[in-house]
């Protein structure tokens, strides 16, 4: 499994904030992630803006991976040491051929 997909797999059911290329910012509970990093969010909150009211009212929203600019994570949800270790191991495996 690609590294960042497994990172987001470990963040399922956690709260994340997604900033998109149309400048919309949404916060929600991560439900599903696939290998394009398409996301499903539930319990969505937005910055108070009238033109985003449908996102807040939505039961769930689908965010296309290619339009994501940033994802804000809670520091306590990510084990940085494990992430660094996995990255090194992946690189070593690739160069070991």
């Amino acid at each position: 499994m690609p590294l960042f997909m497994s990172l987001f797999q470990s963040l399922l059911m956690k709260k994340i904030t997604v900033e998109m290329k149309n400048d919309a910012v949404v916060t929600g509970i991560l439900q599903t992630v696939d290998h394009h990093l398409n996301l499903y969010l539930e319990n969505v909150e937005t910055r108070e803006q009238q033109d985003q009211i449908h996102l807040e009212a939505a039961k769930f929203i689908f965010v296309r991976g290619s339009t994501i600019r940033y994802i804000h994570l809670c520091a306590s949800d990510v084990d940085v040491f494990v992430l660094e270790d996995t990255t090194r191991r992946d690189i070593r495996q690739e160069t070991d051929i």
Partner: peptide, 21 residues
């Protein structure tokens, strides 16, 4: 076309999002 789509959201038909507008 997929690359022009940002989000797809599903709002329950019971929710009236236009009531404040």
């Amino acid at each position: 076309r997929g690359d022009s789509i940002c989000t797809i959201s599903y709002v329950s038909s019971q929710t009236d999002i236009t009531k404040k507008m």
